[in-house]
Design a protein around this nucleic acid. Sequence first.
DNA 1: GTGGTCTAGACCACG
DNA 2: GTGGTCTAGACCACC
Lengths: 134, 134, 134, 134
Amino acid sequence: MHLNININTGSNVPIYKQITEQVRMAVATGRVTVADQLPSVRALAEALVLNPNTVARAYADLAREGVIETRPGRGVFIIPKRKVLSREEGRRRIEPLINTLISEGLAMDFTPDELQKAFAKNLSRWQQEKGAKQ
Amino acid sequence: MHLNININTGSNVPIYKQITEQVRMAVATGRVTVADQLPSVRALAEALVLNPNTVARAYADLAREGVIETRPGRGVFIIPKRKVLSREEGRRRIEPLINTLISEGLAMDFTPDELQKAFAKNLSRWQQEKGAKQ
Amino acid sequence: MHLNININTGSNVPIYKQITEQVRMAVATGRVTVADQLPSVRALAEALVLNPNTVARAYADLAREGVIETRPGRGVFIIPKRKVLSREEGRRRIEPLINTLISEGLAMDFTPDELQKAFAKNLSRWQQEKGAKQ
Amino acid sequence: MHLNININTGSNVPIYKQITEQVRMAVATGRVTVADQLPSVRALAEALVLNPNTVARAYADLAREGVIETRPGRGVFIIPKRKVLSREEGRRRIEPLINTLISEGLAMDFTPDELQKAFAKNLSRWQQEKGAKQ
DNA sequence: GTGGTCTAGACCACG
DNA sequence: GTGGTCTAGACCACC
């Protein structure tokens, strides 16, 4: 198991969200598995050169979501995945992202075809990463 | 010309962004066309029960994007689409939107195939609307 | 790094534009360099006796131009120069500035030759300053 | 004598200023000469499809500057040119325009050489116009 | 009437 | 502490 989180400080995405997203992805793609132990707040903060508060917040969010469990004194662990969101809720949350992408993309002079291709390209990159790790 | 903007004040998305997106969409789908005049800052602010500054900010963003033109003392107008950003800058701005969509989608247990289909479906809807109006 | 911005409240030039121009100049001449941190919105507002919103607007414009990057919660930073606008858009924006200069200059009884010389002189000053600092 | 004013409603330059500028230029280049009569406020407004108030304001500005004279009941006339601004005042007003041009131009990724060339090109275009009319 | 600028001060998210 | 968003209300230039 190797978590390997990358932080982009220049991004608009808040750092704590970059962490939660990458941990969620690592779990979803099977790169880390149930009962795996994550680095401690302090260790991860040091490794990523971040404020421990930022890491703590990310872990708190993940714990609230039911992705990880912090066992005081022993560490942070992955817990079995349950579906948190129903299909419908998922769709409700994902559609605005799609439409923002299309709206901004078209306004920026990209053709629908270019958008489709760019999306497919990035999607396949994510799948490759997943395949490589499994 | 029928603009019909809906604001969701409870959303995380800033109000000014909801406005810019809906205007861009109205233009992209042909619901408003070149040379159409948009409601004045004050009129839209009153209609949406917002502060005029919020509407002004949305209009300013659209003007910077090259979607509209504000003519002081006369009003706000749709202008012919033109290429404002460099190719690289466009790519730089569209990639994070794509990756957020993929990351959130996969984290919500959608398969890559489902995401691809959902994206294609929405994209074709934008084009259909436009085709229907033209 | 020494920013040293001067505001002329009596001028017709909006304050936020005076700020953006002086920051751009500081960057172009090398007085501030990549990765330098600019004063915070509040700090600069206090130093210049301005409303923080006015400074924030100037910073927002610079960020859109690709001169700086605002990192919420951390501050404002100079970033490597990159091409944001398309070639055509750049031309579209620079031509009116040139023509205003020529028109006003000729109306003030300067000869074309004098204008040409004045322009060349200022241009070389910008380059000299930059050379001296680098 | 043919005045031939062109108004660009899409420009940021206020319409009344476009008029004053073009009249001043027409006088400065000798396209219209002393004792020439200009179109009346009403006639020019109709010809340019403008609000008469806008033309009236432009004429008022020109009269205040000493470029034209309105003789009630008879019309609007060019009056002999005097230098309104001293050399020094002229320089004080022209330098900021030059520096804005350079600052924005460099920020937009134009090279000094490109700026110099663009300036020279536009300047020669103005001179050609003048030559053609004389 | 129109949009543009600025101030004042609030609340929020982030680190 | 930082920047981002929004409201409220002022004053100005322009048409």
